[in-house]
Simulated assay, not measured.
Amino acid sequence: MARPRTFNKNEVLEKILIMIWQHGSCGLSLDELARKLTLSKTSLYSAFGNKDAVLSLCLDLYERQYEQPMIDSFKGEKVSDCIRNFLAFSSRRFEALQTPPGCFMFNCAIECSSLSASFKDKVEQGNSAFRQSLKLRVLDLTTNKDPEYIDSLVDMLLVNLFGLASASRMNFPLSGTHLTLLDKCFE
C-alpha cells in the first residue's frame, strides 16, 4: 500500500514553477527539484510524473494564474483604454517581487532547443492561444475590422509585452516612461 502524500501538491507545483521560471529547465533535473524541495524523487514522480509532465503542469498553472489575468486586463470602453490597461497591468506584473523577472512562457521559448518536441508544441499552442485571445478582444472593441489592422495591433501588443518581459529580466524600470508616452499618443 502506498504511503499517503505528506505535501500539498498545488503548493509544491507553484514552487516548482517559480524555480523553473527563475533558473530555467535546461539543467534542472527532478533529482535537483526534489533536493531543493526536500522531497524524495519518488514523491515527485508519484505526484507529477516525469520532467515533461512537470513542465506541462507548470505551463498550465502559469497560464491560469498569470496569463489569464493579463488577458483580462485588456478592457475598457475604447481600444486605447484597453491597450493602456493591458500594458499597465503587464508592467506591474513583470515588476512584482513575488515572481521572478520575465515571463515563464518567454523563458520557455528561449530554452526551446533543449525542450522536448511535445513541450515545444505546448508552448507554441499557449502562445497562439494568448495571441488569439488578444485578437478577439481587439475585434470586440474596434470599429476597424480590417484583418491587417487587427493583426498589426495585436503584434504591437505582443512585441511590447515581450519587451517588458525582457526589460524586467534586465532590471529596467517598467513603470512610468512608456506609459506616460502612451498617454501622450492617445491625447
Results as ranks from 00 to 15, higher is better:
129 A>W: 03
40 S>L: 12
105 M>V: 03
100 P>N: 02
140 D>N: 14
35 R>L: 13
102 G>N: 03
77 E>G: 10
99 T>H: 10
11 E>M: 15
68 Q>D: 11
64 R>I: 12
140 D>G: 10
105 M>H: 11
77 E>D: 10
108 C>Y: 00
87 L>W: 02
122 K>T: 05
109 A>P: 05
61 L>C: 03
102 G>A: 09
139 L>H: 04
119 F>E: 01
58 C>Q: 13
119 F>P: 14
41 K>T: 15
136 L>Y: 07
49 G>F: 01
70 M>D: 04
58 C>E: 13
69 P>Q: 03
8 N>G: 10
140 D>M: 08
125 Q>Y: 00
86 F>C: 01
71 I>T: 09
137 R>L: 11
81 D>W: 02
96 A>N: 06
133 S>A: 04
98 Q>R: 04
47 A>Q: 00
98 Q>G: 01
80 S>P: 03
47 A>V: 10
135 K>M: 10
134 L>P: 12
4 P>H: 13
136 L>N: 08
53 A>P: 12
76 G>T: 08
11 E>Y: 15
139 L>Y: 06
132 Q>C: 09
122 K>W: 02
46 S>H: 14
21 W>H: 08
100 P>D: 07
46 S>F: 15
50 N>G: 12
66 Y>D: 13
80 S>E: 05
21 W>M: 06
92 R>G: 08
104 F>L: 03
141 L>M: 06
63 E>F: 12
33 L>I: 14
51 K>Y: 06
126 G>V: 04
77 E>T: 03
134 L>C: 07
133 S>R: 12
88 A>R: 05
10 N>E: 15
138 V>E: 02
128 S>L: 10
48 F>Q: 06
45 Y>Q: 09
113 S>C: 05
127 N>R: 15
17 L>E: 14
119 F>N: 03
14 E>R: 13
93 R>N: 13
37 L>N: 09
25 S>E: 12
74 F>P: 01
66 Y>T: 07
117 A>M: 07
23 H>V: 09
